[in-house]
Design a protein around this nucleic acid. Sequence first.
DNA 1: CGGTGCGTTGACATTTCTCAACTGTTGTGG
DNA 2: CCACAACAGTTGAGAAATGTCAACGCACCG
Lengths: 235, 235
Amino acid sequence: MSDREMIRESLRALPHFRMARSESVERVAEGCRTVTYGKGDQIFRAGEPCRGFFVIHRGSVCLYRLAADGRQHVLHSLYQGQSFAEAALLNHGRYPACAEARSAATELIEVDGAHFQKVLAEDSRLAPAMVGSLCSRLLSLVDRVEELSVISAAARLARFLLRLPSSGPLEAAEVTLPMSKKDVAAHLSVTPETLSRTLRQWKERGVVEADGRRLILRDLRVLQALADGDAGPRS
Amino acid sequence: MSDREMIRESLRALPHFRMARSESVERVAEGCRTVTYGKGDQIFRAGEPCRGFFVIHRGSVCLYRLAADGRQHVLHSLYQGQSFAEAALLNHGRYPACAEARSAATELIEVDGAHFQKVLAEDSRLAPAMVGSLCSRLLSLVDRVEELSVISAAARLARFLLRLPSSGPLEAAEVTLPMSKKDVAAHLSVTPETLSRTLRQWKERGVVEADGRRLILRDLRVLQALADGDAGPRS
DNA sequence: CGGTGCGTTGACATTTCTCAACTGTTGTGG
DNA sequence: CCACAACAGTTGAGAAATGTCAACGCACCG
């Protein structure tokens, strides 16, 4: 598959453009190029002027901010098929956070900002298509706000696990972590230590079994209760 | 001012429609009605089908979710001139949270969902105008996610105070809380006790002076450092 | 073989919440 | 006008959740 075709495919698969005419997508694709990053490479920094937005074709990316004390705080982890920085492009003109590749050979499609805005202005059917997906992004952020403000580390982890694609029988779903536990911890805004301890407790109670990144969820009911914010039995 | 005029005015002032043609706004206004709620009245509940979205003409509203144990968790506090539930309308068709009036005589404009979507589809200039404001809403949520995941209760309070409209000299800005301390606490996702204690500490250190809802910020530099996430001097 | 980094574990510090008590204010019905 | 209820706000004591620091095993990689 040529680069051009690949770009068209990836764009078409994006929620933003799923409702758009293929002609519109075609035009957007003209303003794209592919870029490849190595693990840990910085894609952009908070405050930089916004050249365009990105679609992940392969690999993974994380968005983070730097606190005053220099620590990274992960706002979002993104994977294949997701896009980021559109909101920045269509508003600020500046990136609100830093972005970094989290896998080796992370391949991104960079959509040129000026070109995209031109297409957006000229093609009257593109904007309505985007409104829907922006709203859905908005709602998922609302969920995240709730998660962070409301619920405990254990509940966040339970939710995370239950949302992973699972295989196996209903009463013993098997899931595989899509990233290292350290990164899972960062994604959930807890320390790796807390995550490790939480998992150990669950193992001791027979709620999960663990083997590296592969987990077997033995008691979905308990996990669901934890995810819903029930404190769960102490000690 | 007639109801119709009031509605037009309020809509025009909304970020969503600031870039829209006045003809578009006119059409949207046709599908609106005003509703008045008393303090504590429920506007809608999470999961209900979405009749439309709302603009606050007077008063205040909070959006919250109910945890499994029945406690309310505030996701957002909203005031005059703000709108809510558009994202729900343009996606789910269901409200993702509960909404409640927080002031007596809270007057809302209810924009009929079906009518609005019709206008959105027919008027090709409305959607582009909305894309911008949805993006800005998105960015403000990203900020909120960062706040909640990153920073301490004291830092959240410091940020909150520094963002309030202030009067007085630069070195002793005076601000007035826009709601009860209890509600401020809920907005910041801390308990009223924690808020009270934090303020007391600051008073003892001479950083702020307090008189009910009126606060004098005596040391903006310290507050700014706290807001930036510096831990600040212990004890 | 030695280094690097993840994951785990323990001891401890810190932050924040919970529960309970008490105060002061406000609004209401008698 | 007063007694009283209701509620915001404050304070204290103690518990719970989570983070910090340090140590160690283990796998992977040059």
